[in-house]
Design a protein around this nucleic acid. Structure first.
Length: 293
DNA sequence: TGGATTTGACCTTC
DNA sequence: GAAGGTCAAATCCA
């Protein structure tokens, strides 16, 4: 365990060094510098994650999983927590089913008098709400905001649990193809050869990964995925802190192991890619010509 | 004014 | 026919 902590501390140190350098007067804005530094930091965190996973440190209380048959596949990311800012978001259960849906239970996020499911890092648009038989609370239906741009078919259903109103059950359906195109646009230097092979590896099911063909893709999203070490599975979702909550969340990739980055790195990524999150910002991301492709 | 949400109606499946 | 899922017009909001 000491070895793992040492690895984590080392990654944190690298992040602080980068942050320190960026705050100096002679800010090195060169993308290659940022790329190299971020890659080093992400690699350090990845190493820590791999060691943690190798140590089989995770367990899953069965009562936290919904509808999961014994012996079925579980995601190692379950039970992870993340701390960004002052708020700790803890996801308590995830279950993957063979039909491509992922069911996850997350605690309600309190913002004022409202309670809502925490931001899961994707940008969703609500398209329906339905009262469900024998359920006290209605079910809300969301689809990926980027559907119109990428044909992303990812959807989710959110419903508050009858027996525990403080918990939401979130059922994810489909794959976020808006994150998996291999064609970077904004940052030409961030082609896979520049940032490693991970950028193409986040389509693990072969189902909808590259079905968009040459559809446009935000390089910032891809770099963000890579920065946050999401090499294999875009459907393994951390639930990061939600600022204002709601469905207008920011795009944050996630690692299969389920983790949060050092705040310094996350903030750096936020600063670099904050405009990539919503449809309304797409004009800033894609030129009209690019968008028409 | 454009994007997101709400909500009643419609469609699909069992 | 009932229930879940989706559509789309109306409405809200920044």
């Amino acid at each position: 365990m000491d070895n793992i902590l040492s690895q984590v501390f080392d990654a944190c140190r690298l992040a602080r060094e980068l942050e320190s350098n960026l705050r100096r007067a002679n800010v090195p804005t060169d993308p290659h510098y940022l790329l190299g530094s971020c890659k080093e930091i992400a690699g350090a965190f990845n190493e820590a994650i791999h060691r943690l996973l190798a140590g089989n440190l995770f367990s899953y209380p069965s009562q936290m999983l919904s509808g999961e048959a014994p012996g079925s596949r579980l995601d190692p990311g379950a039970g992870e927590g993340s701390s960004r800012g002052t708020e700790l978001i803890v996801t308590t259960g995830i279950a993957r089913r063979d039909n491509g849906t992922v069911t996850r239970r997350v605690p309600a996020l309190r913002t004022g008098n409202m309670e809502m499911p925490p931001d899961d890092g994707y940008t969703w648009r609500k398209y329906g709400q339905k009262d469900i038989l024998n359920s006290r609370f209605p079910r809300s239906y969301y689809r990926c905001t980027h559907r119109s741009y990428y044909g992303c078919e990812a959807k989710k259903k959110v419903q508050r649990l009858d027996d525990d109103p403080n918990m939401f059950e979130v059922i994810y359906c489909g794959t976020h193809t808006c994150q998996t195109s291999p064609t970077p646009i904004l940052i030409p230097t961030l082609v896979p050869s520049a940032i490693g092979n991970n950028i193409n590896d986040n389509d693990d099911d072969g189902g909808g990964g590259h079905q968009q063909g040459a559809s446009p893709q935000s390089a910032s999203i891809q770099l963000r995925n890579w920065l946050e070490g999401n090499p294999r599975n875009t459907r393994t979702l951390l639930v990061p802190q939600s600022g204002a909550g709601g469905s207008t969340s920011r795009q944050v990739g996630q690692q299969p192991g389920g983790r949060d980055m050092d705040d310094s790195v996350a903030e750096l990524a936020d600063a670099m890619f904050n405009s990539a999150s919503s449809g309304s910002s797409m004009d800033a991301i894609f030129s009209p010509r690019q968008r028409s492709l």
